[in-house]
Design a protein around this nucleic acid. Structure first.
Lengths: 141, 141
DNA sequence: TTTACTTCCTGTAGTCGCTACAGGAGCAAG
DNA sequence: CTTGCTCCTGTAGCGACTACAGGAAGTAAA
């Protein structure tokens, strides 16, 4: 059994984050030592690592909870996982596309922005005309 | 002079967000009517629109405040704006690159994830091996 | 004038996924 | 026994909003 510091090292999850996951019911409560310290089994650490990897892939906690409940069941229904992964891929693609459009807009705006000290055409455009296209999806930024 | 509802319509900034911007000192406090309602000039609305456009471009509020203080001065120092815009472009490019790597990782993981009902190779990989490369930058997700 | 309806006001709390304390207790080495 | 590390709980903060509750002001019709 491992203390929270070791569990953090081995899973790559910050100590404060581990306690946060426990508070929120994302991972099960670990055992405690006589002195009241958290004690993690290798299985508990594996769960933490799993959560970190899913977070690294950009999955929100709610989806990760679904994944965790699927791994608990014996028939890990792969169709469900595939569907969730594909939805997530769609979101990632949308974000990439949105950021690319943003990039183009910003490039156009700053193109005429030379290093002189005169009035800035970029700020002018933003104050007056805007930049052509409407709003982007802010959630990607 | 316009009430907050009209100012919201014309600037594209949510009413609650306008009040939030005022509380945080991002835009100046507007005049008030006898009954205590906010009254916006066209200039005040232009500032709100400017903030929205900058937010749409992904600039954080702190940078937008710098922009606003630059537009107040007569010599709108374009060099400063250009530098901030280029830094922001770098960030956008980094986000696009990171999301692309994420996309590849997720594609690889879900590739073997067929629609059968057997144990899911994606969940297996995340529980055991992981997905090869280390952590991504989470701030992009 | 009364009534109904809409818009507005302030103040506070919630969102997401952490992160950073404060103030104290447990524990191991010297 | 003291030093120094790790751990504990509880709470507040981040960024940029968003969503109420509970009430006041304004407008238009009956």
């Amino acid at each position: 059994m491992f203390t929270i510091g070791k569990a953090s090292e081995q899973s790559g999850v910050n100590i404060e984050t581990i306690r946060y996951y426990e508070r929120e019911g994302i991972v099960p409560k670990p055992e405690r030592s006589a002195g009241g310290r958290r004690l993690y089994s290798t299985d508990g650490i594996a769960k933490l690592r799993f959560v970190r990897r899913c977070r690294d892939l950009g999955f929100p906690i709610s989806i990760i909870q679904t994944f965790l409940s699927l791994t608990e069941r014996d028939d890990r229904s792969c169709g469900e996982v595939k569907r969730l992964a594909e939805d997530h891929l769609d979101e990632i693609n949308a974000k990439i596309e949105n950021l690319s459009r943003l990039r183009e807009a910003l490039l156009n705006l700053s193109a005429n922005c030379d290093d002189g000290t005169a009035a800035c055409p970029m700020l002018d455009a933003l104050m007056n005309d805007g930049f052509g296209a409407g709003a982007f999806d802010r959630s990607n930024i």
